[in-house]
Each structure stands twice: as C-alpha cells, then as structure tokens.
Amino acid sequence: MKSIIFSAITFIASPVFAGVSPGHIFMCKVTGFDKKEVKGQCDPSRPKALMKIPREWLAEDNQVKMNKRVKFILDDKQYGQWLAMNNLEMPKGKSK
C-alpha cells in the first residue's frame, strides 16, 4: 500500500512539462556595464528595473554598447542563478 501511495505522489509531484524547450531567451537594453557585468532593462513594462547580466553569458560580448540591445540564452541552471542575483522570483507556474 505504501509503495502505491509513494508512486502516486511521485507521479503527481513530477513537474508539469509543457511543450516548451529548456532554453530561456532574453533581450535587454544596455544601460551600463563594467568588466564583469552588464546592467540592462529586460522588461518593457518595468523600465526602471535594471538587471545585472554577467558578461560571460553574452555570446557576443563585443556588442555591449550603451542603449543597444543584447540577446542571450540561458539554460535552466543559469536562469535560476540570474533570478537569484537580481533578487527576483521565478514566475508562477514556471517549471521548465
């Protein structure tokens, strides 16, 4: 009986993976940068919210210029790290 209950819980506890890839693609407008990181506006609805982006995550680091946009792709681990370094929370229901 215990094994049945445990199996049921395990099944239900599995994250609900929709048909979405694990890649997270962002585009941010550069508002400042130094040797290690870029600061940028990444959410048009929150223009005053600036986010830190490690430069090592930018595929084309030489494209970093003020008021230009940078596009970068994060895997799940980097995505979690990025949110944490910016004191942000994972969107509700984001299980990918």
């Binding site: 962002f26 048009p44 919210a49 969107p91 509700k92």
Partner: peptide, 28 residues
C-alpha cells in the same frame, strides 16, 4: 501532427517582482 514555433511569454504582472519576459521554443 505537431506544431513548433517560437513563443514570447510574460507573467501576469501581479504580485511580487518576477522574471522579465522571455522567448522560447514551443511544440504542441
């Protein structure tokens, strides 16, 4: 048959600060 394409998602902008909108690859 499946459909594949790129989607752009944002949260519902309520509650605590959340991650910015992002694009991703989707299939259904």
């Amino acid at each position: 048959p499946t459909c594949t394409g790129y989607i752009y998602c944002s949260d519902n902008k309520t509650g605590t600060p959340a991650a910015p909108p992002e694009a991703g690859f989707a299939a259904c």
